[in-house]
Simulated assay, not measured.
Amino acid sequence: MESHQRATLVRRLLLKWFRSSGRSFYWRENRDPYVVLVSELLLKKTAAPVVDRFLPAFLKRFPDFASLSRARHATLVRILQPLGLSDQRAGQLRALAQAISGSKDGCVPATRQDLLALPGVGEYTANSLLCVSFGQAVPVVDTNVARIVMRAFGIGHSRCEARRSPEIWGLAADITGNVPTRAVEVNWALLDLGANVCTARTPRCRDCPVSSICRSSNT
């Protein structure tokens, strides 16, 4: 089976699985760029369910970048303590909020180049914004997604290399497809599959929707 055909089948199987088994989070219901961008920064090194419980109260206190940019560093450190890395997160959030609120229109930019110029925003976060908030069919690749792609296509990379590999990103883009409304669900499905099924140490291949065509399946 050639790679494009495999990617198409993976996409179809993921979409079917996601509609019955996908997770629900605050930032998936509210796709406002502010909500999505703040969520992505908080999700770094913190489990999604933890951020999901924390986020509503945080957004109530800081409903936009203008209010967040005015927050004192010490105040943010105290509020962010339940998530860990509070001093680092406070600095990143303030820098980001000040950069955006101080821009010409005070809005989150809608191009990859401008997003990558923001403090704390890398390829993963930029593509997440482009896909979720701005309706672009682009892949969102983290370590978990890279692992799924490697296993499904039988590709070898080190853990550090994989999520930066042009080959992995290219295959992920093929899986994502070019239909924006479906691309969001495909990306979320990959993230959920990597978090709960295709895990690093003990993958649950019998529960995986793509095990029938995965080159690394144990079934």
Rank of each mutant, 00 (worst) to 15 (best):
M1Q: 00
M1D: 00
E2C: 10
E2Q: 10
S3Q: 11
R6G: 02
T8Y: 05
T8W: 04
L9I: 14
V10K: 09
R11D: 08
L13N: 09
L14Q: 02
K16R: 15
K16G: 10
K16A: 15
F18W: 15
F18G: 09
R19D: 13
S21T: 07
S21P: 02
R23P: 02
F25E: 06
W27G: 09
E29F: 03
R31S: 15
D32W: 01
D32Y: 01
Y34E: 04
V35F: 05
L37A: 01
V38R: 01
V38M: 01
L42Q: 02
L42I: 10
K44Y: 00
T46N: 03
T46V: 11
A48W: 11
A48L: 09
D52L: 04
D52Y: 06
R53P: 08
R53E: 14
F54L: 07
L55D: 01
L55T: 02
L59W: 10
L59G: 07
F62Q: 01
F62H: 08
A66T: 08
S67N: 01
L68R: 07
R70H: 10
R70V: 06
R72K: 12
V77K: 00
V77L: 00
I79S: 03
L80T: 09
Q81R: 03
Q81E: 06
G84L: 01
D87F: 04
Q88Y: 05
A90N: 00
G91W: 06
R94H: 00
L96H: 10
A99G: 05
A99Q: 03
I100A: 07
S101R: 04
S101M: 00
S101I: 00
S103K: 07
P109V: 06
P109L: 05
A110K: 02
T111M: 02
T111K: 00
Q113W: 03
D114V: 03
L116R: 11
L116P: 04
P119C: 13
G122P: 03
A126G: 07
N127Q: 08
S128A: 15
S128W: 00
L130G: 12
S133H: 11
G135E: 12
Q136S: 09
Q136G: 07
Q136V: 12
A137P: 14
V141M: 14
V141T: 12
N144Y: 12
V145F: 15
R147D: 08
I148A: 14
I148R: 09
I148W: 11
I148L: 15
G154T: 14
G156Q: 10
H157N: 12
S158K: 14
C160Q: 14
E161P: 00
A162R: 02
R163D: 01
R164H: 14
P166I: 15
A172E: 11
A172R: 08
A173E: 13
D174N: 04
I175N: 10
T176N: 13
G177V: 14
V179R: 13
V179H: 08
T181I: 13
T181V: 14
E185F: 04
E185K: 05
V186I: 11
N187G: 15
W188M: 03
A189S: 02
A189L: 02
D192C: 00
N196P: 01
N196I: 06
A200K: 09
A200G: 01
R201P: 02
R201D: 01
T202D: 00
T202K: 09
C205S: 02
R206V: 04
C208A: 04
C208P: 05
S217N: 11
N218E: 06
